[in-house]
Design a protein around this nucleic acid. Sequence first.
DNA 1: GCATCATAGATCCTATAGGAACTTGTAACC
DNA 2: GGTTACAAGTTCCTATAGGATCTATGATGC
Lengths: 237, 237
Amino acid sequence: MTAVQTNTAGSPFGSVNAPRRSVLADEIYEILKSKLMDNVVEPGARLSIDGLSRDLKVSATPIREALARLESDGLVTKRAHHGYTAAPLIDARTFAELFRMRLLLEPACASWAAEIATPRQITAMEDLIAEMKTPLAGDGYESYKAFASQDAAFHGALAAATGVGLMVETLERLRPHAQLYRLYYTVGIADDTVREHERVLEAVTRRDQAGAAHAMSAHLSASRGRLAGALGQPETD
Amino acid sequence: MTAVQTNTAGSPFGSVNAPRRSVLADEIYEILKSKLMDNVVEPGARLSIDGLSRDLKVSATPIREALARLESDGLVTKRAHHGYTAAPLIDARTFAELFRMRLLLEPACASWAAEIATPRQITAMEDLIAEMKTPLAGDGYESYKAFASQDAAFHGALAAATGVGLMVETLERLRPHAQLYRLYYTVGIADDTVREHERVLEAVTRRDQAGAAHAMSAHLSASRGRLAGALGQPETD
DNA sequence: GCATCATAGATCCTATAGGAACTTGTAACC
DNA sequence: GGTTACAAGTTCCTATAGGATCTATGATGC
């Protein structure tokens, strides 16, 4: 945890001359959420309120609020009088549940998107796929993280193309990519993923709902198979 | 804490002699969550931190924490420097999305439960159905609330019977019954609901996965039709 | 050597105080 | 009558202080 005080104005969070559009607690929330999603804070790591207060040079109050929100988000766990801990790394059971839910939700998501996605949304998804084809710069860990981020962006854009806010929220809540991205490090980046995304988007583009659902189902099953090895378990089906 | 610790008669949180298993912020969270889920706090109502602090006779700190958690839960909304508001009543769009997601999730839920529900879990669901058949005591509003609570309990038990924690969480997060129960007041209590629950459970009991899914799908479609009138919109499909 | 107890330090939790921001009411002006 | 400016009151937000709880370490007794 490094100090955030980078501004000569004395405020940790930007110019004192600009009107505040958010409050400190919101900003702390975003900073901590980012660190948790990016695994800058390791899964299972202790999060000390006093420590964060010192590091971020703010009082405990906004820290507590931010952590309370993150608890409800499922990103941290809290034990009374003991403090907060970053949610643990995904285990085999959660992995299985996660893919089971994804295999229920995301083919339907693709099908719905095939029904009503706008040309603009489709173009945006094409751009995301093109971006995924660009060789990634940087060393191993960072490139896997970037890949996972692109992967997540494609799935997120597809959900948004359904126009069903509750689908977007439901998938966001599962946080598949934040939970799975570390597994990419073991199994490597898969060109297959990009091709599978392309097949999903082709079906969406030609308004083939069943095709989109099938392509997404195949993508998820393959993804599960690729990642399962990283968990030290063989694929079960 | 001195005021609460020495105040036996007026303590909002029970006996001062019992060891505290939770902290004040947790208890405030439960109290407020209960009031929001039960609509004791009206949808759209202002929630004043200072007001709650005075009413509950605690400082603003645990109030703020509890509200922060409830914001992430989706039960309240917050505007910086303006305060918190109870989440608004369900509108037609959210209603449509809610049933769309339920029709995706809950037939699968019933199917999964048909696969692995234990006899004990099935018996518990039978008990819940029997309870729903008991004529409800009390006046209109309270009986509709009780009915909605029983309805929710049956669906919750079914989700638990899948053994998939993420399914339980996902359905909990949608909070269908807390959002819909007010609509029961307009359309009345439906004996059909009980019969539909019975059909779902019969299929689960005989391990008929497709039958369970179909029965749940029929139940949700019928429920949607019954409740849609209360929204001032005709059923669209 | 092991178990128990006491102590110190760290951390968590809540109350309180003070400043910032917002809302409402009133007076002055056109 | 409508508009603008200002003041007062209310509420939100954060820092600080103090007490409660937990953890680790050392001392003592068996």
